[in-house]
Amino acid sequence: MSMQEGDTAMEQTRPMNLVGGIAATAARARERRAGSVQLTGPKIVAEHFNFYYGAFQALADISLEFPALQVVGIIGPSGCGKSTLLRAINRMHDRTPGARGEGRLTLDGQEIYAAATDPIQIRRRVGMVFQRPNPFASSIYANVAYGLRLNGVRSRQQLDERVEHALRRAALWDEVKDRLHRDSGTALSGGQQQRLCIARAIATEPEVLLMDEPCSALDPIATLKIEELIDQLRAQFTIVMVTHNMQQAARVSDMTVFMLMDEKTRAGRVIEVAATAQLFTSPGDARTEAYISGRFG
C-alpha cells in the first residue's frame, strides 16, 4: 500500500517535468529548422473519413490535412488506429478481406478510394517504410533496383545512377558502395537495413513517404541516423510517420496528430492536430496533455 501511495505522490509532480522535457525538445527542433520549413498547401486531405474491417469500425470521422513537404507525426496509444490510418493512405488494406474506406481521402485532390482509382498508381506515388526492416533476400543493389524495375527502368546505366542516388540520399552509399552486388540486403545491420528500405522506397521518387514506426526495431544510434535522414528527406517528400515514441515525434515532426481509441465503439479518432511545438507545449485537449505527460498509454 505504501508503495502505491508513493507512486501517486510522484505522479503529481512528474507530468509537469515530462511535458517540459518534450516541449523543450520540440522547441529546439523548431528552432533548428527555422526558415527551412516551407508554407505549403495540403498534399493529403481526409474529410470525414471512416475505415472498417468488416463490421468493425477502425477509424471514425477522420478530418485532417497533411501539408506537402512537411513531416507529420501520428502519435497515440496502441490500438488507436494510427497504423490503420497510415496504411489507408496507400491502400495497403486492399488485401484484407472486408476492409473498406468511406468518406473522402484524397491525394492532390484525387480520391484514393474512388472506384476509378488504380491502387497501383497511388502506391507508386506513395512510398512506404515498414516497422521492421524488411529487405529482400537479394543483393543490396537489387533491393534498391526492385521498384525501378517495376516502373520499367531497364537501362543498366540509368539503374546504376538511380540506385546510387537513392543510396546516397539514404546516407548508406559510403557504407555499401564496395559490396553492392556481393552482399545480400539481409546481411546488413538493422539500422543499415532500414536505411536500405528507405533507399528502396525513395528510389522511385514517390511524392509521399509513409513510415510505420520506422525506428521501433532499432537501437538508439541507428534511430538517430534515421531521424537525421528524415530531417533531410523532408525537402523533397511529404512524410507521414507513425511513432510510439513521443520524443521522436517532438524531434522530427513539424505537425503532430494525436489519436485515441473511442472507449465505447473502439474506433480510432483524431483528438488533436497542431504544430508539434504547440501540441507539446500547450496541448489543447486534456486527453492530449494526459497522454504526453505519461499518465496513460
Binding site: 496507400n90 495497403m92 486492399d94 488485401r95 497501383i120 498508381q121 502506391r123 507508386r124 506513395v126 512510398g127 512506404m128 515498414f130 524488411n134 529482400f136 526492385y146 521498384g147 517495376l150 516502373n151 528500405c197 528502396r200 522506397a201 522511385t204 509513409l210
Partner: peptide, 8 residues
C-alpha cells in the same frame, strides 16, 4: 507488402 507498396 513491400512489393505492393512499391506499386507492384
Amino acid at each position: 507488402e513491400v512489393m505492393l507498396a512499391l506499386g507492384a
